[in-house]
């Protein structure tokens, strides 16, 4: 306690007061001097005892923090009393809980990363293997020309897929790492949708699917046009894939004081209940997933939306269709 500078000053001032007070009252009456001396001394001792107690408590807390920094989160210091010290303990505990949670998340992330690498390896391995095979076949000079053309086409499609995969992974990793600056501009929802579905109109037409967009044309939110459109494209793409020929895809949007919402739904096959909680997981393949689906589009959409202060949810009924709900919240909590 004594090494604290303010305590030294405190004691010095108290002593000065003690001496002065005693001196002055001694001159009024010697007895008064004695009384003053004793009572002032008592006050000083009592206050020092209390200060000491307080410092001890602070020392305890710093001991506690040391243990937390060493990774021990199990200790509970809260005592549920009134007063500043108790509030401090309570707040420290809340930080502890947060830290321990983050540590947990970190651990999970590590595991996840390992899984992801194995997933990615697997995803890469399949086309590469098939390309190796085709490459071997192409090396055969007796291969007829038509087969050669077919194999070459196949290889280039595999390459394309690889490219897309790699670029998607790259984007995803960039989003995860937070290295991408999301713009904060006013995005008109209608324009966003138009742009997102622009490239998808042809595949839809091929599958004879119809698209319906409803909502107020002035709806908007604060976000990044390019990335958002990528997210929506991925979702709509997913819908197109899981909706049979002649199906219908609907998009509606609305704005409230809390959020701007975009709902996208189809009347396709729907998603199995068991799959539903996991469809936004990377490389997750549901029961009626397409063979060439790699389960990255929805994951990326989720990341993009969440990075822009939004959430995405899905609900589905088997045989009736799937509905994605995107909400961009107006303010940042």
């Amino acid at each position: 306690m004594l090494r604290n500078k303010e305590i030294k000053i405190y004691i010095a001032i108290m002593t000065l007061v003690l001496i002065t007070g005693t001196w002055v009252s001694y001159h009024i009456d010697p007895l008064a001097g004695l009384i003053t001396f004793l009572s002032l001394l008592c006050i000083i001792i009592i206050s020092l005892i209390f200060t000491n107690w307080r410092y001890k408590k602070i020392a305890q807390l710093s001991q506690y923090l040391k243990r937390i920094s060493a990774g021990d989160y199990t200790l509970d210091v809260r005592d549920n009393d009134e007063g500043e010290l108790s509030i401090l303990k309570s707040e420290i505990y809340k930080v502890t809980v947060m830290l321990s949670e983050q540590a947990n998340i970190l651990k999970k992330d590590k595991l996840f990363l390992a899984d992801s690498i194995s997933d990615i390896s697997h995803q890469l391995k399949t086309p590469i293997t098939s390309m190796f095979v085709m490459n071997d076949l192409l090396q055969d000079e007796n291969l007829p020309q038509d087969k050669r053309i077919e194999f070459t086409k196949n290889i280039s499609s595999q390459l394309e897929r690889l490219q897309w995969l790699v670029s998607s992974l790259l984007k995803l990793s960039k989003i995860d790492a937070g290295t991408i600056e999301f713009k904060k501009e006013n995005v008109n929802v209608r324009k966003l949708i138009d742009r997102a579905v622009e490239h998808l109109l042809i595949p839809m037409e091929l599958k004879n699917q119809t698209l319906e967009v409803t909502g107020n044309e002035n709806d908007s939110f604060i976000g990044d046009m390019n990335w958002s459109s990528e997210a929506i494209t991925n979702i709509v793409k997913n819908c197109i894939e899981h909706t049979p020929d002649g199906g219908k895809i609907s998009i509606s949007h609305s704005e409230t004081s809390i959020y701007t919402m975009i709902e996208i739904w189809d009347n396709g096959a729907g998603i199995h209940k068991e799959d539903l909680p996991y469809i936004f997981n990377r490389f997750y393949k549901g029961k009626n997933a397409h063979n060439d689906s790699i389960g990255i589009g929805l994951a990326m959409a989720k990341s993009i939306i969440e990075k822009q202060n939004g959430i995405i949810e899905v609900s589905s009924k088997l045989g009736q269709g799937t509905k994605f709900t995107i909400k961009f919240y107006k303010s940042v909590v």
């Binding site: 409230t256 809390i258 959430i311 919240y329 909590v333």
Partner: peptide
């Protein structure tokens, strides 16, 4: 609206 808000705090 209320449920949305509760969800925001829950998620965010």
């Amino acid at each position: 609206e209320i449920i949305e808000l509760l969800k925001v705090f829950n998620k965010k």
